[in-house]
Design a protein around this nucleic acid. Structure first.
Length: 1099
RNA sequence: GGGCCUAUAGCUCAGACGGUUAGAGCACCACACUGAUAAUGUGGGGGUCAGAGGUUCAAGUCCUCUUAGGCCCA
């Protein structure tokens, strides 16, 4: 540093800072030109922690009467079985941005963190830690001890979560969090269950569900679609078995003794066979085979050519309908005599002829369709498989075997006709079959379909209403409403809500243990429980606790049993965790036991956000319970974002290391950079996102650095002038300078657009709008205004300060840490997040001004291209530029800006269509409108097009247009004014170049370089060289210097002729033009290769 | 296994109704500009529009098939 504090005024900006690198004391503080954003962020975070800014931001907003000034946000509870990943961070950023925005708009936005704590993942973790594998071992260990282990495991990562969430600058209340395992929350869950029960929407059933025999639990539909690995290829034995027909029907004639050929990939279900299903409209045949008559679908004959030959003898033809009612001998004798069983039944929805034999065996309890069919046919399903997936009584031959392990034994017995195989049953073919098969998302074991007892919410009864209420929800992106979510609701099935497990909210149902005296009691509160049982469920510490085993301890005599012998006992199931999270809206406030009035006012929530998969998870369960209990939607706006992918486009995977480490990104690029990267991406429009390090750094480069540099620029010159801007007062918006006026008008447009986008939850759009505004601010306004700041013009400081203030405030939700540091440095205020969203009605609304400036920028870029083409460097001044546009008057205020930007001595604005405009080599160009001419001319249109391009076209005196020898009619062509290039060298020296403007006008650049202009160009080069030398010498921008210039004759001439320009621009108080290069001079090349030497020193 | 979607520059994607030189951003190269900028401006290279057939005066766009990838459902 060359500064000497003694002879400088104390710096004004930054007024306050938390950046430890900015200097310890006020007089040494400076805005760093190349900030370390992560270090600044840590400073801001520490400041927030100390200042308690978050609490203040919530509490400074009045909730209003009945909380009508509150914006209600529901935080979807994560299950914290590991550290947060990008998906959590992404959702967290949105969960931060919307509440910050609404707070600035004046709303009170409470934000409570929530934890999803119950469920199988916690149980599995507890089992792993205790080295146990089965539910029997859990009971042996003691449910109380086991649940304590579950409780400990779900709280394990909460500290890390808090650290990550805090570091990402998400404001949320952790101290006042809700947990689904807290007694208050669970009491609300019980209330919800009872509410559904009382409305008749809960029933106990026997349903075939995907079932994990390893975890000993049925899985819900959501769990079956939990991830891509659920369905994996698996090889199973497939068998074709013949069942002997024992009873005829009228339509098929006498088929007794023939065999129904069925095909299955689950041989283990054959002992439980109860029926054979056919398609009533499918064609079937009976063919002879080695003395047997076999029934199968005609379309499947070819598939069995190996056994049957290419042209088997067909002795009967008919449809499935003809086969209905035939009876047969079951393949195994275990359930012989089962009522209504062992018949051919119709199941058109289930039977196809794409594989197998066209006949399907049905084991009611082991397939969803099977169950539907046996229910329809009045056949009681049988269940010879235990909860561990092993055979039980009466299937004694295979008892104790896992069903998959029993497959080969069953096949062997069928082949050998041993065991319980009935006479007449034949194994016709065995093969292996590769198919996509569901596996447990937790333990990855293959699932089976199995009938289990479960409680259900009758979603099918309310799905019509759910669909109606869905129409009231605003979805972002919009297509989710009638797409993924709407379709899911339309196809909703009843929701199995109970699990035969341990760690969860209890099913609050007590049943009589004697069927002779049936009774069911359902409880919806502690109070009701205490009333009937005389006490509350108490845990080992004596606290009220609804968890098992304490709740199971509550029993009482059955009031309906006059003998007094039977007892009311709780059903042992616990509720599905999705029932917990679906209860979050009321559970988090302990409704209806507390906050009833508040809840009524704040349901539905204004806003929720989660990833798209929650259309089947949390969004869905919230919607079910809201519809069933309140006949309202649970949320009015919902963002559902896409999935975060690793840098290789695949799912993020720890083992593949295909994504940047979260902590490293925080440390290197910062939380705001990651926030911007995620928020500006297509992921909020429903697309997926590939996380890459260059992408994150791009956010820094495109947005954070430009914003910061604008602030640095302001601070630099305001400090140099010791100028303090009056941010927030009306006079700060009063500048009459055209550029200032333009910026203020542009800012107004920007804020209006941004506000509309934020209101519509279009966060990615808001990022894009901001990015393009920052481009205008930094690469146009600041660049074009440098001189005025250099001159210390107050209105420039006022304008830039006012705009920086506004920009910081509106960008605050999108870059909360960076804007905080800038805004506080600019204003000295407590926090930008305590500020109000800016009211821009005081800013000029001037569309013509903004439009004119857009045209000015077009003029500049078109002319730059002309310079480039003519190889005329920008520092070489040119005599003049003529601009031909429709509305020259609108550009008039900016003529000086154009001249300065393009380094031309004069800018002439000419109206299009004037005589002068016509003199600039304007040509006409014919374009054939193929769309119009094509249908009339047919093939010939190609000739006309060719002619228009080659120049073979003309306009006759009467206006008739001919192209390629074909006359065109009005509308089939367009004649446009077109400006050619620089002219033909054969016509003499080129003196100008012409360029078209995208908006329709054109510019003509005078390209004649006179000796005077060349000399001034050299002088400008010298200025630039001196500036570079100053910078290389580490001088401050305000330092005065001693300057010596030497060099060739043209250099000396230019240096003498333009002394005042050079000395003035470079702050040289001593200026020497020398024949000989001084010692230590820097050699540079200027002009057209002239050598110069310059020496600088502090004055 | 069934249904839906996608395939365009090295990368990410635009390309209403078919209309004749297929665009943008990023990346790359050159030049320019630089008293805030790690920025910025101008120009350039880079495409058999997945492949094959077809309809049409005209196909990236419509039709058929093939291939590859994705999503949803079983």
């Amino acid at each position: 540093m060359q500064t000497n504090p003694g002879d400088r005024s104390p710096m004004t900006y930054p007024k306050v800072t938390t950046d430890p690198t900015a200097g310890p004391a006020a007089e040494h503080r400076a805005v760093p030109s190349s900030p370390r954003f992560p270090r600044i962020e840590e400073g801001v975070l520490a400041y927030w922690a100390e200042d308690d800014t978050f609490r203040a931001s919530v509490e400074q907003r009045d909730p209003g009467a009945n909380g009508e000034n509150e914006f209600v946000f529901y935080d979807g509870p994560p299950f914290a079985n590991g550290l947060p990943h990008y998906g959590h961070l992404l959702t967290g950023y949105v969960k931060d941005i919307v509440p910050r925005y609404q707070t600035m708009r004046g709303k009170r936005v409470e934000r409570r963190f929530g934890w999803d704590t119950h469920g199988l993942p916690a149980e599995l973790e507890a089992m792993r830690l205790n080295g146990i594998k089965t539910t029997d071992e859990i009971v042996e260990m003691g449910i109380d001890k086991f649940n304590d282990a579950c409780r400990a495991s779900v709280l394990k990562y909460t500290g890390e979560w808090r650290d990550y969430v805090t570091r990402q600058a998400r404001w949320v209340d952790f101290d006042n969090d809700y947990r689904t395992m807290n007694p208050e929350f669970m009491e609300s869950v019980l209330w919800a269950f009872k509410g559904l029960f009382d409305k008749g929407l809960v029933y106990q059933g026997f349903r075939v569900l995907p079932y994990c025999w390893n975890d000993e639990t049925p899985l819900s539909n959501h769990e079956l679609r939990m991830d891509d690995d659920v369905y994996q290829m698996r090889q199973d034995p497939a068998v074709t078995v013949g069942f002997e027909i024992t009873g005829a029907n009228e339509r098929a004639g006498d088929l007794v003794g023939a065999k129904l050929l069925i095909w299955t990939t689950t041989p283990w279900t054959l002992p439980s066979n109860l029926a054979v299903m056919v398609g009533s409209e499918i064609d079937y045949v009976v063919v002879d085979h080695e003395g047997d008559r076999l029934v199968l679908a005609e379309a499947r004959l070819a598939a069995y050519a190996r056994e049957l030959g290419d042209e088997p003898t067909v002795t009967w033809r008919g449809t499935g309908a003809d086969l209905l009612g035939l009876t047969y001998a079951p393949p195994f004798s275990y359930f012989a005599g089962q009522e209504n069983a062992f018949r051919v039944v119709a199941a058109d929805e289930a039977v196809t002829t794409t594989d197998g034999s066209g006949l399907v065996h049905s084991a009611g309890a082991f397939g969803e369709v099977d169950k539907e069919v046996t229910d329809r046919e009045g056949i009681e399903p049988v269940m010879p498989v235990g909860k561990d997936g092993r055979f039980t009584h009466p299937v004694t031959e295979y008892a104790g075997m896992l069903v998959f392990d029993a497959n080969p034994h069953i096949i062997d017995d069928l082949k050998a006709r041993t065991g319980a195989v009935t006479p007449g049953t034949v194994l016709f073919r065995r093969e292996t079959y590769d198919h996509s098969y569901p596996h447990c998302w937790r333990c990855r074991e293959p699932l089976i379909y199995k009938g289990v007892s479960s409680w259900f919410v009758e979603v099918t009864a309310i799905k019509q209403r759910m669909a109606e209420l869905n129409q009231e929800i605003r979805w972002v992106p919009e297509h989710i409403k009638d797409g993924q979510f709407g379709k899911w609701v339309d196809n909703a099935r009843d929701w199995s809500i109970t699990r035969n497990r341990f760690w969860g909210s209890p099913v609050p149902v007590w049943k009589s243990d004697d069927e002779a005296y049936p009774r069911i009691d359902v409880y919806g509160s502690f109070e009701e429980i205490e009333r009937d049982f005389g006490r509350l469920p108490l845990n080992a510490q004596g606290q009220p606790d609804l968890h098992r085993p304490w709740i199971d301890d509550l029993t009482r005599p059955n009031p309906d049993d006059p003998t007094g012998k039977s007892t009311m006992r709780r059903v042992s199931d616990v509720l599905d965790v999705w029932f917990d999270s679906g209860s979050m809206s009321f559970g988090q406030v302990h409704y209806p036991f507390e906050n009833a009035e508040w809840f009524e006012q704040h349901f539905p929530a204004d806003f929720i956000v989660e990833y798209i998969g929650q259309t089947r998870g949390w969004f869905y369960t919230l919607h079910i319970l809201a519809t069933a209990l309140f006949d309202r939607p649970a949320f009015s706006s919902c963002i559902s974002h896409g999935i975060v992918l690793g840098s290789d486009g695949n799912k993020m995977s720890k083992s593949l290391r295909n994504y940047p480490d979260v902590s490293e990104v925080f440390d290197r690029d910062g939380a705001d950079a990651m926030r911007w990267f995620l928020m500006a991406s297509p992921i909020l429009r429903g697309g997926n996102l590939v996380v890459t390090e260059p992408g994150i750094r791009d956010a820094v480069r495109q947005v954070m650095i430009p914003l910061w540099n604008t602030w640095y620029f302001f601070a630099l010159y305001a400090n140099a002038e010791n100028y303090e801007a009056s941010v927030g007062r009306a006079e700060s918006l009063g500048s009459t300078d055209p550029l200032d006026r333009y910026l203020l008008a542009k800012t107004r447009q920007y804020v209006e657009k941004l506000t509309a986008e934020m209101d519509a939850y279009a966060i990615a759009d808001a990022c894009e709008t901001t990015r393009s505004f920052l481009d205008v601010l930094t690469n146009w306004y600041v660049r074009r205004s440098r001189e005025r700041f250099w001159e210390g013009r107050p209105e420039a400081f006022e304008t830039l300060a006012a705009v920086l203030d506004i920009v910081c405030r509106v960008v605050a939700p999108l870059l909360p840490l960076t804007t905080e540091e800038i805004w506080r440095g600019l204003t000295g205020g407590r926090s930008v997040h305590l500020a109000d969203w800016p009211d821009v009605s005081a800013l000029p609304a001037d569309a013509r001004l903004v439009g004119a400036m857009d045209e000015v920028r077009e003029v500049c870029s078109t002319t730059s291209a002309l310079r480039k083409a003519a190889r005329l460097r920008n520092r070489l001044p040119l005599a003049g530029l003529t601009v031909v546009v429709d509305d020259p008057a609108a550009l008039e205020p900016f003529a000086a800006i154009v001249a300065d930007e393009l380094n031309v001595k004069s800018v002439r604005l000419v109206a299009a269509g004037s005589d002068e405009a016509a003199g600039h080599g304007v040509e006409q160009k014919l374009t054939v409108n193929a769309r119009a001419a094509g249908p009339r001319l047919g093939k010939d249109v190609q000739l006309a097009i060719k002619g228009s391009k080659s120049g073979d076209w003309s306009v006759a005196a009467d206006g008739t247009v001919t192209a390629g020898g074909l006359a065109l009619v009005e509308g089939e062509y367009s004649l446009e004014t077109h400006v050619g290039g620089g002219g033909d060298p054969a016509d003499g020296p080129v003196t100008s170049r012409t360029g078209m403007l995208p908006s329709g006008g054109f510019v003509v650049l005078d390209t004649v370089v006179t000796p005077e202009l060349a000399e001034e160009g050299v002088a400008r080069d010298l200025v630039r060289a001196v500036q570079q030398a100053r910078r290389d010498a580490d001088f401050q921008v305000t330092d005065r210097i001693e300057l010596t210039i030497a060099g060739s004759a043209p250099v000396l001439a230019a240096a003498r002729a333009h002394e005042s320009l050079i000395a003035g621009e470079t702050l040289a108080t001593s200026y020497t033009v020398a024949e000989e290069a001084p010692v230590g001079a820097t050699e540079v090349v200027v002009g057209d290769g002239d050598k110069a030497a310059i020496a600088v020193g502090l004055a």
